[in-house]
Design a protein around this nucleic acid. Structure first.
Lengths: 391, 391
DNA sequence: TTTGTAAGGAAGGTCTACTAACAAACGTGA
DNA sequence: TCACGTTTGTTAGTAGACCTTCCTTACAAA
C-alpha cells in the first residue's frame, strides 16, 4: 500500500452532522438555566438562592434573577428563613410550589378501560377517573379520551399545567400516534388535536417508555443506562441511555415482545403462535395471560419451575442487550406474584451466566418501585419535562 | 382503592436530574454556533455566508462575524465569487481549509504493531508509520506509543490540530484507559499524559467505538441508530443512538464478544472455551482466528455452510439488540472474504426471522464502507470532534 | 438607463451573565 | 456591650452575543 491513499471521502459533501444541532441563542441559555434552577428545587426540595448558586455554578446575582422570574410565574415561593443558626446573614429558603399546580395523566395501556388521574407535581394521585371503552376504537375512542380529559380537567382543584398520555403503539416525538392497532389509531396527531381542543398542552408517548420515565424520575432507576420491561397483555420495554429515552428509527424501540426466544429445534418446548403472525416470540411465554395459563393449577413447586424456565428465556433475550449497552439495571413492571420470584431470579442468573463478569456482576434486575400507577406517573413526567424542563 | 393515595415519593429529595446538565453561558452559545458554521462547511464543502445563514437559521450578520473569526483562525478561507449567474449581487464562497491542517491518528487494535498515520481533515492518509510492539506492555508500550506519535508529528507537513488514538479496552470519557489487558494498561491516564508530553491535544477512545465514529462521519452509517460490529482477534461493537455513542455504565458498552450464543444442550455444536473463562461466547465462533480454523481446508460449499451457521449465531445475538433499540443498520467490519457472503446473509436472514417485521424489514446489515483504516479514520474524528466540534 | 434582487457590512438595541461593591443580619470574641 | 468577621441578597456597571434596521455594492432583466 502506498503511503498516500485516496481520501476516505471527497472533500465536499462528506458525511452528515453527528447530532442534528440547531442554533443557540442567549434566550435559550436563559431557558436552560431557568430549568436548571427549577429542577434543582424540584429534586432538593428547598434551598437558599446562595445554595442554588453554589450547586449550579451560576452567580448569586443570576440565580436571584431567575428565582425572581420563577416567583413571578407562581412556580416558586419563599419559605421563610432557615432556622439553623450559623454565622452570617440567615438564608431565606425558596421552594417549588409543588402543590399549587396539578397535572392530568391518562393511561391507555388497558384494552378495556381508560384510566385517568389528577396528580400533583410530585406524582401523588389526587383524584381518579376511569371509563370503559366498550369496544370503541378509532374516532370514538379518541372522543372518549377527550371527554375523560375534560372530566379530569374539571376535577382538578388547582391550575393544570398540562395533560400527559401514555398510549400503547408507535408514537413519534410530536405526539402523533403512528400506529396503535388495539385502539384503531393510525397517523393520528393526538397531542396536537387535544392541545387544540382542550386548550392545555398535551404530551403523548408510548406507555412502556412512559413507565421507564416514571421509574426514572419518581423511582430509583439508574440514569446511566436502564431498561424497564413492562409485562401485561403484551411485553414491551422502555430504555434510558445516558439519561435520555431511546426512540429508535421507527420510534419502535423497546419492542422486545416479538423477539424469537423459543426455537423449533430445542428440547421439549414447542414454539407457540403469536398475534404478530410468527411463533416463538417472547410475548407468547412472558405475557401475563401466558404466564397464568402456564402456571394454572400447578403446585407451588411446579409453578416456580415453570416461571423459572420462562425467566431463563427472558434472560437469554436480555443478555445481548445488557452487554451491548452495558446497562446498570433492568426493572420489571407487572404482577409481582408472577414476576417477583422464580422468574426474576432465573432471569438474573441467566443474564449473569451469559454475559461478561464485568457487565453481569453489577447488574441489578429487580421489580420497578412504582405500582400499577407507573404509567400515570410517567405521563406526569412527560408534562413536567415538556412544560417546565424538569425531570 | 381510595381516590387519593400517598405521593409516589416525598416532595423533597425526589429523583435526580434526567440529564446531568450544567449552566450555559452566552459564550457557550457562541462556541456552539461557531461549530455549527464550521460543521456546515465541513459537510457541504463551500457555501456563501448567506447560504450558511439560511441553513443555520442565524442572521447574515451573525454568520459574517463567525466566519470572520474562523478566517482569522485560519480554519476558513474565501474561495472567490460564485459563477452561477442569478439575479442580485454574486455570492463570495467560503470553505474550510481542509488541507491546511493535519491530524495524527494511531490504531492500537493490532496486538503486534502500533499503526499510525498523518491524515488530512477529510480522512485521507498522507503518511503512515508502524512499529512492532515486540511483546512490550505497560510502561514500555506507552513509551513506544509516545515515540510513534513524535515521529508522526515530525512527519506532518502542516500544523497538527491534535492526536487521536483508538485503543482496545475500557476507556473513560477523559481518555483514561481503565483497563486494556492486552497492553497491560490499568487506570492509565493516556490522553492527559500524552497531551502533556507532546504539547498537542490528545484524544483516546475504544477502538470499536472509534470505528463506529469513522463509519458514521466518513462512511454512510445511519445516525438514528446503528451498530458497527468489529471482527478481528476479538469481537466488539460500537453503537450510535440518536447521533451519540453509547458508553454504558462501566464504559464497556459494545462488548458483545462475550455473550453466550452456543448452549451446551443444543444439537451438534459443543461450546468452546473462551479466554474470558466461560464458554460458548460469540467470540469463540466469530473471531477471525475462529472463522479461519473453522473454514480451513473446506470446499467452498462446506465453508459457506460453516460461515452461515456462524452467521446464524450472530443473528441470534443481534436480534434482541436490534429490536430493543430499533436500529436502522448493522455494519460489519473485518475481512470481507470471511464476512461478506454466507455469514452476512445468514445473519441478516436470522435477524429478520427473529424480529418484528416493522423492525427487521427495513434493517440493513452490510459491510462497513471503510477498509482497515476505519479505526484510524475514527481516531481522526475524535480530534475533529474534540478540537473543532465538527463531526 | 432604470428597476429589482441579493450579498455583505455598519450602527444601534436587547438580552444575558459576570464582577464589584454594599447593606442587612447574625455569631463570635474581646 | 460592641467591634469584627461571615454570609446573604441586592444594586450598579461591564462585556459578550445576537438581533433588527439601514446602507452600499453588484449584478440581471426590462
Amino acid at each position: 500500500m502506498t503511503a498516500t491513499t485516496q481520501p476516505l471521502a471527497a472533500a465536499h459533501g462528506v458525511g452528515r452532522a453527528l447530532r442534528p444541532t440547531g442554533k443557540v441563542l442567549p434566550e435559550h441559555a436563559r431557558a436552560h438555566n431557568r430549568s436548571l434552577v427549577l429542577a434543582h428545587l424540584f429534586h432538593i426540595g428547598h434551598a437558599s438562592r446562595a445554595d442554588i448558586a453554589r450547586s449550579t455554578g451560576l452567580t448569586r446575582v443570576t440565580v436571584s434573577g431567575l428565582v425572581a422570574a420563577l416567583i413571578a410565574e407562581g412556580l416558586v415561593e419563599e419559605l421563610g428563613v432557615r432556622v439553623e443558626g450559623k454565622v452570617g446573614k440567615p438564608a431565606t429558603l425558596v421552594g417549588m410550589r409543588t402543590e399549587a399546580f396539578q397535572i392530568v395523566a391518562v393511561d391507555l395501556t388497558d384494552d378495556a378501560h381508560l384510566l385517568g388521574a389528577v396528580m400533583t407535581l410530585v406524582g401523588a394521585v389526587v383524584d381518579r377517573r376511569s371509563v370503559a371503552l366498550e369496544g370503541r376504537t378509532g374516532e370514538a375512542a379518541a372522543d372518549l379520551l377527550e371527554s375523560l380529559c375534560r372530566d379530569l380537567l374539571a376535577a382538578a382543584t388547582r391550575p393544570v399545567i398540562g395533560v400527559g398520555i401514555a398510549s400503547p403503539g408507535v408514537i413519534d416525538l410530536d405526539g402523533t400516534v403512528v400506529q396503535a392497532p388495539n385502539r384503531g389509531w393510525y397517523d393520528l396527531p393526538l397531542a396536537a388535536r387535544l392541545t387544540e381542543s382542550l386548550g392545555v398542552p398535551v404530551h403523548v408517548a408510548n406507555d412502556a417508555n412512559t413507565r421507564a420515565l416514571g421509574e426514572f424520575t419518581y423511582g430509583s432507576a439508574a440514569g446511566s443506562g436502564c431498561m424497564v420491561v413492562t409485562i401485561g397483555e403484551g411485553v414491551g420495554a422502555g430504555i434510558v441511555v445516558d439519561g435520555a429515552l431511546v426512540l429508535g428509527r421507527h420510534h419502535a424501540a423497546g419492542e422486545i415482545g416479538h423477539v424469537t426466544v423459543v426455537d423449533g429445534d430445542v428440547r421439549d418446548e414447542p414454539p407457540l403462535g403469536c398475534a404478530c403472525g410468527r411463533s416463538g416470540c417472547l410475548e407468547t411465554v412472558l405475557s401475563v395471560p401466558a404466564l397464568r395459563r402456564r402456571t394454572a393449577g400447578l403446585s407451588r413447586e411446579d409453578s416456580d419451575a415453570a416461571l423459572a424456565s420462562v425467566g431463563r428465556l427472558l434472560g437469554i433475550a436480555l443478555a445481548p442487550v445488557v452487554s451491548a449497552l452495558d446497562l446498570a439495571e433492568v426493572l420489571l413492571s407487572g404482577p409481582p406474584e408472577l414476576l417477583d420470584g422464580a422468574l426474576r431470579e432465573s432471569a438474573l442468573a441467566t443474564v449473569r451466566a451469559r454475559t461478561m463478569p464485568v457487565i453481569g456482576h453489577g447488574l441489578a434486575l429487580r421489580m420497578g418501585s412504582l405500582d400499577e400507577d407507573g404509567a400515570l406517573a410517567g405521563a406526569a413526567v412527560l408534562v413536567l419535562s415538556g412544560q417546565l424542563g424538569v425531570s
